[in-house]
């Protein structure tokens, strides 16, 4: 387990960026403590702003500030900065070309006991169809730390889908992040497993089980779902001939859809999904929710075997 919570890394990096760049601002909508950004108010009383529980206003305010040369980071729980503000992200920010960074915390089943109302199962799907947006789902503290300054300087509207608590680090200190390049965690020849967010750690667990079964899986972390790294996807599947996607999201509209789109156009290949099976969330801890939605390491192994049978 990493020493720091993901939200603490977010806050630490934001603090550093705000010290270095007077144009970085942080806007919260009454969830600053949950997002980890609360403490920034002490150091930056003018640039760490809370607009209250008004996410639509928050997105458009941030876009207005962007038009003045500011680099706003806005935060809230995933559903409230995706499905609730879809039109504001589309028009005030993306269509108007006013870049903002949207940090949605507690994606999918990570909302745990906040339950179905707070579970953003569809945020990637909702936002992925907005032209020109970047969608990034970090895996661990190492990746998040490197990603934030790159995102701040990108000049694009970016949605960060952030698990906010402590999670195992997957990458080591020698890791070099590229926002637009998927990371091959393990090379293999029998099946490719494309995974993102908290499902990367689950896939790493599955890796040992697969090896025991004699399956040589290639494991690729697709941290940026839009624009997706087509080259890495096609190159891997050319070798393995089949794929599984693993995501903490509805299997419609998210990683499964994005990978399938790439392969349908470039290299039609059997792909099977691990993820939330087109249903709403419910109250529960993550181990329980992974079990009911069949998102465990064992489910990944079973799905890998199933898709390998579909290979020509």
């Amino acid at each position: 387990m990493a020493d720091m919570e993901m939200r603490a890394v977010l806050a630490e990096q934001l603090k550093q960026m705000m010290q270095q760049d007077p144009k970085v601002v942080v806007i919260d909508a009454d969830l600053a403590k949950a997002s980890g950004t609360w403490g920034l108010r002490k150091d930056f009383p003018d640039r760490a702003i809370d607009v209250g529980i008004a996410e639509q206003n928050m997105v458009s305010i941030a876009s207005g500030m962007a038009s003045y040369g500011y680099k706003p980071f806005i935060t809230s729980f995933t559903p409230f900065v995706s499905r609730r503000v879809c039109d504001q992200i589309t028009l005030s920010s993306c269509y108007a070309k006013q870049p903002i960074t949207i940090v949605g915390t507690d994606p999918g089943i990570c909302a745990e006991i906040n339950g179905g109302t707070h579970m953003g199962m569809e945020d990637i799907g909702v936002l992925r169809s907005i032209a020109d947006i970047v969608i990034f789902e970090p895996v661990d503290t190492v990746q998040l730390k490197q990603a934030l300054p790159i995102i701040a300087g990108l000049g694009k509207t970016v949605y960060i889908r952030l698990f906010r608590k402590k999670i195992d680090d997957v990458f080591g200190e020698d890791y070099k992040f590229d926002l637009f390049k998927a990371d091959t965690i393990k090379e293999g020849k029998d099946v490719t497993i494309f995974c993102t967010g908290i499902m990367v750690q689950e896939t790493v667990k599955a890796m040992d089980l697969l090896q025991k079964e004699g399956i040589d899986a290639e494991i690729i972390n697709v941290h940026t779902i839009k624009p997706i790294d087509k080259e890495t996807i096609v190159k891997s599947v050319a070798k393995t001939g089949c794929a599984v996607t693993a995501e903490n999201h509805n299997i419609m509209g998210g990683l499964f859809s994005a990978v399938s789109e790439v392969l349908a156009m470039s290299m039609p290949t059997p792909v099977l999904p691990i993820g939330v099976p087109d249903t709403f969330g419910e109250v529960g801890k993550m181990p329980y929710l992974k079990q009911i939605y069949k998102m465990t390491a064992e489910d990944i192994v079973a799905k890998a075997k199933e898709v390998m049978k579909l290979k020509k």
């Binding site: 601002v25 003018d46 640039r47 702003i49 639509q56 206003n57 997105v59 458009s60 305010i61 941030a62 876009s63 207005g64 500030m65 962007a66 038009s67 003045y68 040369g69 500011y70 039109d87 504001q88 028009l91 005030s92 269509y95 108007a96 070309k97």
Partner: peptide
């Protein structure tokens, strides 16, 4: 704003421009 010289903010989906103006006013204060 990206098509017409002199337009300070893109608007059309009602309500949003007003929030953008609030953001611009905040930025000007900063």
């Amino acid at each position: 704003m990206n098509k017409t010289i002199g337009i300070d903010m893109t608007t059309g989906s009602l309500g949003q421009g007003f929030s953008c103006a609030v953001g611009i006013a905040l930025a000007s204060k900063l």
